[in-house]
Design a protein around this nucleic acid. Structure first.
Lengths: 210, 210
DNA sequence: AAAAGAGTCCATCATTTGTTGGAAATTTAT
DNA sequence: ATAAATTTCCAACAAATGATGGACTCTTTT
């Protein structure tokens, strides 16, 4: 039996990887309690016990999904940090919004999983939050809102969180917001990016000029 | 047996009202699938069948919760509209943020319910979204982003949605964000308001001056 | 006081759900 | 080719869950 504490990424064509991928999609769509082991097995096209064989209990699988996601987010943020290092603040923000939106629009489950991780308790106790705290602190420093990641003022963190949340929201909620705006997929994506830049950049540009 | 299509608000001391209140709290906290009829009954301190007697199936109760919430939101938005009618745009925004935050901080389940209504599908089909579309359009007109509620550009709606979502997020996610900022309840509330005003007002003030 | 009605609870049922043991099938090693 | 290990499926179980019928209690009406 394969280890359940496996940290390495799963090959997407392996059974273990296929299960993880389906779990991510379904957990993102219906939440932890909204997904049954039978739904998962059916989605992958396998028997329930095969699922248990690879990942153990439902909660273990959920935790694996969150750990995997967390790892991916961390990588993405580092990538962005590398891209904008040394640039002007408004340019940094613009690139960050652009890149995060592009990625999250292609992985809406990721945004949904993070949202339910922030907002939702579950009586079945998968308290596996994505460890976003460090990332927020890093971004705050990168944006010049703080001098050192160990001492970031609450105000600075709150400002970063506002940006972060706005991106997560529009990507996670596309199915609900897009009909509301009456636009197609491509239009939605460009309107969202435009709006986020329009709203978020001026505030920070001003504070950086001051 | 009382009608299940009852539209009027329930007296908060009646059994039907107490059940609705508990349902709102629990559905907000754990989501539709995360709440069992037994949890609900226990929360109110009654038997399961009493619950069924008053509200029928679980889905009916959930829909009642959402309808009630929707009604309350509508009232709150009208109240805000009345308060800021005729004022300058930046003042309108400030008051709207202030009042909505105050109310949602006192009713965090409301914010959580709306979020899960936007983001989450459920296989048990309570597709009862809060009809936010009209409200967003009204706000857009009130903010001078559109001339008439029937023809609001997607851009305008998207901007209003950004504001709306930011407020919802910080109020719904207090339990997660507050430890992250390392502040107490009162500090959190004031930091959130300050941050929202700091970020959201400049963008609109600029566009209004142009 | 008696009857009618409304509200609550107990016991129970049928399904769903998480989970497991063990047999069959498939792959890998010898 | 044969044995060993790995992977998959079938069948089943116990607990949890949504839902209901009927008895009991309390209030209101006549």
């Amino acid at each position: 039996m394969p280890s359940r504490l496996e940290k390495a990424r799963q090959a997407p064509d392996s059974m273990k990887g296929r299960i993880l991928e389906a779990a991510r999609r379904l957990f993102g769509e219906y939440g932890f309690s909204g997904v049954t082991t039978r739904m998962l097995a059916k989605e992958v096209g396998i028997d329930i016990s095969t699922l248990y064989y690879h990942w153990g209990e439902k909660q273990d699988l959920y935790e694996a999904v969150m750990a995997d996601l967390s790892c991916e987010i961390r990588g993405k943020l580092r990538e962005i940090e590398r891209m904008v290092r040394g640039a002007a603040l408004s340019h940094r923000l613009e690139v960050a919004i652009e890149v995060m939106c592009d990625w999250l629009f292609e992985h809406p489950e990721a945004a949904k999983l993070m949202l339910s991780s922030y907002m939702g308790k579950s009586r079945s106790a998968p308290d596996t939050h994505v460890p976003i705290k460090e990332h927020i602190a890093n971004i705050a420093v990168a944006m010049g809102l703080a001098l050192d990641t160990a001492h970031v003022p609450a105000r600075a963190n709150a400002r970063v969180l506002t940006v972060w949340n706005s991106v997560i929201n529009f990507t996670a909620g596309e199915d609900f917001f897009r009909p509301l705006l009456g636009v197609n997929r491509n239009e939605y994506r460009s309107v969202v990016k435009e709006t986020l830049k329009f709203i978020l950049i001026p505030a920070f540009a001003r504070s950086s000029a001051a």
